[in-house]
Amino acid sequence: MDSSGGFLVQVYEQERSGLLRFLCARCGDDAEAEDVLQELWLKLDGLATGPIGNGKAYLFRMASNLVLDRRRGRMRAMQRDRGWIAEEAGGEPEAPEDRADPAQPADEAIARQQEAEVLHRAIAALPPGARRALQLYRFEERGQAEIAEIMGISRSGVEKHLALAMKMLRNALSDCGAYGSAASLQREVKQ
């Protein structure tokens, strides 16, 4: 294990109970939380990273991303099962050759297409400030502080724009049923 991995293992030992508590709340399911924690531990082994400023933030973010990966998998599985996916025509026509992935199963391809169409429409409908901030953040990979400089607004102003954008994109996906049973699945687990 290299030095940063070793450092993270130390932080992991210190933060283990906090991580577990976070994962329980994040997953809404204690067994899944234990699984994720185990997965995180295994990932730390052999992890080669650059210098890490804030080990705790790094580990929590890693844990949170592992949960997100699971939710994405669950959402895709739900979309594959459900079949009806694409809806509401009117996405911007694009050269289809650029986007085709013949290896992808048809239903999943449709799910992704539809998701992309919904997102593009939602992005186009964002207020200009939110749209510009999102463009810089997600498609030009600028940090939040850098966006504040580019747009000549405060950090919290950037966060407001981005939060609005994220919320509206979430609403758009929700309206087209993208989360459908993924959400209800969790509800079952929870109640």
Binding site: R26, P128, R131, Q135, R138, L173, A183
Partner: peptide
């Protein structure tokens, strides 16, 4: 937690789409 899942899923989905057309006017 559900709300957080949905928001972060929406953001993650952005990673799989083509960049939108740039804005044609100032911010």
């Amino acid at each position: 937690a559900r709300a957080y899942d949905e928001v972060s899923l929406a953001d993650a989905a952005l990673g799989e789409i083509e960049p939108p057309a740039p804005l044609h006017l100032a911010a």
